[in-house]
Design a protein around this nucleic acid. Structure first.
Ligand code: MN
Ligand code: MN
Ligand code: MN
Ligand code: MN
Lengths: 147, 147
DNA sequence: AGTGAATTGTAGCATTGGCTACATTTGTGT
DNA sequence: ACACAAATGTAGCCAATGCTACAATTCACT
């Protein structure tokens, strides 16, 4: 009842079908918050694809109710898109911090996170969060040092 | 010079382009070792797709030199395919053991590993291996206990 | 206002990997 | 041997996502 399917490969394919949406809304959200707006060309540069690919994907995401835009205008997120972006960003950050915490170099952690994040389920995310909060303080802090 | 590209998303797409090959040769290798041969129907059941999809993918992997087969006959691996299978299985096992080690329930670990494995680079794999060998002994062992 | 560069959209093509329906081959069992 | 069931292949469809080439629009600057 929790996974989308009994077969692991079906789940992976379902994750991949969601992947583009997650990366795009996360990128739109970040750009809007950082530079005020998000243009097709910004997304193309960010994703490393042509503007044509972005344009078509934006259309699809608009049909799916995640994005709003008019021709030749910037791209914005719908409330639904914002929610997906918030979820994606949170998961992305947890995964990346986790990889850093186990000693993966920053550049490699950033790279691997971009793919790994979409396959991290609830249980795995919880395990990563738990690991992070456990190994949060290096050594000097003890429970008694709070007060 | 280590990653396939500067842009993380390009790397993810490159990983996805390799993903089918890795999962299929790993499956072929396992089946050959377990039940003596690997048929198209076995792969179809394992991957959760129709035999048609398997048949086309097997053709492509044969053109790529990973698989050998004749019409209506079982599927075998070429030496190149065996090497890729060995690499994939090793990485798969490390990732899965790692998820189990950080407390992910077995079923979820198996599921998430199927997707995550393809995005785990050298550094991340090394960090996971290191974590596994470090946290190998539950608690009683301390550095001084070696001698 | 007009012009030219930048941006975005459209047309058309390729690849991958899903599918159903149907054809062919294999092989089992009588 | 033959007939039928299982396995595999083929034809033809679809969706997603990559691309180049070209058309349309916007925008900044004179
Ligand atoms: Mn992300
Ligand atoms: Mn991503
Ligand atoms: Mn896999
Ligand atoms: Mn993936």
């Amino acid at each position: 009842m929790s996974g989308s399917s009994e077969n692991p490969f079906r789940k992976v394919r379902a994750d991949h079908a969601q992947e583009t949406a997650e990366d795009y809304v996360e990128a739109v959200s970040d750009m809007v918050h950082r530079i005020g707006e998000c243009r097709v060309r910004d997304l193309a540069a960010h994703m490393g694809v042509s503007h044509v690919t972005v344009s078509r994907i934006v259309s699809r995401l608009q049909e799916e109710g995640l994005i709003e835009t008019e021709p030749y205008r910037p791209v914005r997120l719908t409330p639904t898109g914002e929610k997906l972006a918030a979820m994606s960003r949170r998961r992305h950050e947890i995964v990346e911090q986790f990889l850093l915490a186990i000693g993966v170099p920053a550049e490699d952690a950033a790279r691997d996170t971009e793919g790994i994040e979409h396959h991290v389920g609830e249980s795995t995310l919880a395990a990563m969060e738990n690991f992070l909060s456990s190994s949060h303080r290096p050594a000097p802090t003890t429970p008694e040092a709070i007060e």
